[in-house]
Amino acid sequence: MEIENLHTQKEGKMTISFIVNGDKHSLEVPATYRLVDILRKELSLTGTKVSCEIGRCGACSVLMNGQLVNSCLLMAYQINNSEIETIENLSKEELHPIQKAFLEEGALQCGYCSPGMVMALKALLTDNNHPTIDEVTDSLSGNLCRCTGYNGIIRAVHRYISNS
């Protein structure tokens, strides 16, 4: 893919095409517009949170082409022709089993980190239905809970595993 083919001549913007939660989108945005801003401001998908804005907290975690990414670190030009999945996609009709386990185990305190935590766990549990505690801990290493709700989160993972 050649970047110059993506740019428009109008005001330094480019047209990007991508899929979010199964829906195709084509937007004209500055090349360095962040994915988190596209999701929240352009597509009104506010489940993805903005916190540290430097990729350290994981509150903005989404899946891009099946891989967990920090949406605050991805620029518009990097998401062209990609497929994005956000927290909103997990509960279109009913809560995803990971979300149910979070509720049942009280893995939510303020809830700000929860979307990123759930997406990180979805990324892990999609490929590994029975992770070890070390694998769970490793998969959550990029996500911070400032309310120290980690025990509830670990209990929720155990509940999810025992129910699957």
Rank of each mutant, 00 (worst) to 15 (best):
Q9I: 07
G106D: 11
E11C: 07
A107C: 09
L121K: 04
D37Y: 13
C72K: 08
L43G: 04
Y112G: 08
G142E: 05
C60N: 01
E105N: 15
A101H: 00
P131R: 01
L35H: 10
I161Q: 14
V157F: 03
L125G: 07
K41H: 07
L63D: 06
I98Q: 01
I38W: 02
A123I: 05
Q78E: 15
G66Y: 08
G152I: 06
I3C: 01
I84C: 04
T126I: 07
N129G: 11
I3F: 14
G47P: 07
K100W: 06
G47I: 06
I3W: 07
V29L: 11
A123K: 08
K10P: 01
C147F: 03
H96V: 12
I19F: 11
M117G: 00
M75W: 13
R155G: 03
E94T: 15
A101I: 00
N70L: 10
Y112P: 02
E11I: 03
L39E: 07
K24P: 15
R159C: 04
I54H: 15
R159E: 12
L43E: 08
E88R: 03
N129W: 00
G111H: 07
V36R: 08
E88Q: 11
L6D: 04
M14P: 00
D37H: 14
A107N: 01
E42T: 06
E83F: 01
N143R: 02
N70S: 09
I161F: 09
G111Y: 08
E11Q: 14
D23I: 11
I133L: 12
S82L: 01
S61M: 13
I133M: 12
Y150V: 10
R56E: 11
S114W: 04
Q99Y: 00
D134C: 03
E94P: 01
